[in-house]
Simulated scan of single mutants.
Amino acid sequence: MDLATLWFVAIAVLWTGYFFLEGFDFGVGMLLPVLGRTDAERTTVISTIGGVWDANEVWLIVAGGATFAAFPLWYATMFSGFYVALLIILVALILRGVAFEFRGRREDRRWRANWERAIVAGSLVPAVLWGIAFADIVRGVPIDARHEYAGGPGDLVSWYSVLGGLATLTLFLLHGALFLRLRTFGEVRVRARQAARWIGPATVLVVAGFLAWTQVHRGGVVTVVTAAVAVAALIGAWALNRIGPAGAAFTLTGLAIVAATATLFIGLYPDVLPSTINPAYSLTVHNASSTHYTLTIMTWAAVIVLPIVLAYQAWTYWVFARRIGVAQRPPQRRPTPKRPAAARSGHR
């Protein structure tokens, strides 16, 4: 395997990790008003991802950085064509991160409700747009002979891309519901299990339809297997949610995300961004990559740094592995205002 192909695989792995980890974050955020009926319950729902959501987003940063360094032409052309969609995603992620931090700053009901809406919107928008974006990458976009994007915003919207957005939306909702069932107890856990029962069938249908369409468009022998694994894992997750342990069901939705993402990247290879104008204008693993020297330096850096990053994130999840619920949360106390120095002196 040459270094360009190796880094294409590495980027696929990074996106897979991002969708697996950030997928349940998005699901938890979207399900916040559904599963949290009281302020204490909504605080519990948010607390399940409070210690890990920002670390999960590191996978997105690393995936973007790796794409920029290993495939600069792919990065430049993709960001030129997807600029509006990526800007919307960025704003949504920023709003979501701010909402997590600001929601608990006041006891005011309206203040908390507004930031909770921001969490929902900041989770919903990326969950849909990432599916649309990756569907467009697999389907192809208008790229001219200079490898520049030659279309407009309307060229990024098709029935296939919309189905891709619905696929990631439902998949992340199911993943998040099962994560909440795994991480909570009490009424929130009961509602999470019920939500997964309702979301499961829709997820299976939408994801199966999207992967079948992908198979017709850019599929092969290997993608038949990965797509079948994804659908079978979703069916298994839905069944286990009804009769089995939460951990096994959550693991299967994670397997579905891994298999579905693998289907997209395997179907895409050796292209990284196909051209709908002329296949000869497509960006491929080799004509869009950096020099061999650059890829060599990146490879050594990844070998040294990646194990440290993975070990740190594994430790983080181990620290926050305990189930939580409303009954566990201590009552929140307002900070006692400090007395002026003069008043303290007089008291003495």
Rank of each mutant, 00 (worst) to 15 (best):
210 F>Y: 08
118 A>K: 04
263 T>M: 00
149 Y>W: 14
62 V>E: 08
28 V>H: 08
169 L>E: 06
260 A>Y: 01
63 A>L: 06
307 P>H: 08
111 W>N: 03
12 A>Y: 00
334 R>M: 11
2 D>V: 13
314 A>Q: 14
259 A>R: 04
113 A>V: 07
343 A>C: 15
239 A>N: 10
32 L>Y: 07
136 D>T: 15
150 A>W: 02
324 I>F: 02
97 G>H: 09
261 T>R: 02
316 T>Y: 00
139 R>M: 14
107 E>Q: 10
188 V>R: 10
72 P>Y: 04
328 Q>P: 15
348 R>N: 10
194 Q>E: 15
341 A>G: 12
12 A>M: 00
24 F>H: 02
335 P>A: 12
144 D>A: 07
233 A>E: 00
58 V>H: 08
11 I>F: 09
4 A>H: 07
295 L>K: 15
17 G>F: 05
177 A>E: 09
4 A>T: 12
23 G>Y: 01
52 V>A: 01
318 W>N: 11
29 G>Q: 00
278 N>F: 00
337 P>V: 08
14 L>P: 09
296 T>S: 13
308 I>W: 01
2 D>M: 08
14 L>C: 10
63 A>Q: 03
296 T>Y: 09
346 G>E: 14
250 F>A: 09
283 L>C: 06
69 A>L: 12
278 N>M: 04
230 A>F: 02
285 V>Y: 05
269 Y>K: 02
58 V>Y: 08
5 T>I: 03
75 Y>V: 05
56 N>L: 02
287 N>R: 04
230 A>S: 03
255 L>D: 01
113 A>K: 08
61 I>H: 07
70 A>K: 07
276 T>D: 13
93 L>P: 08
331 P>G: 06
228 A>K: 00
229 V>R: 05
2 D>W: 11
204 V>D: 07
277 I>L: 12
118 A>D: 07
18 Y>G: 03
185 F>T: 15
131 G>M: 04
91 V>H: 07
207 V>S: 03
264 L>D: 02
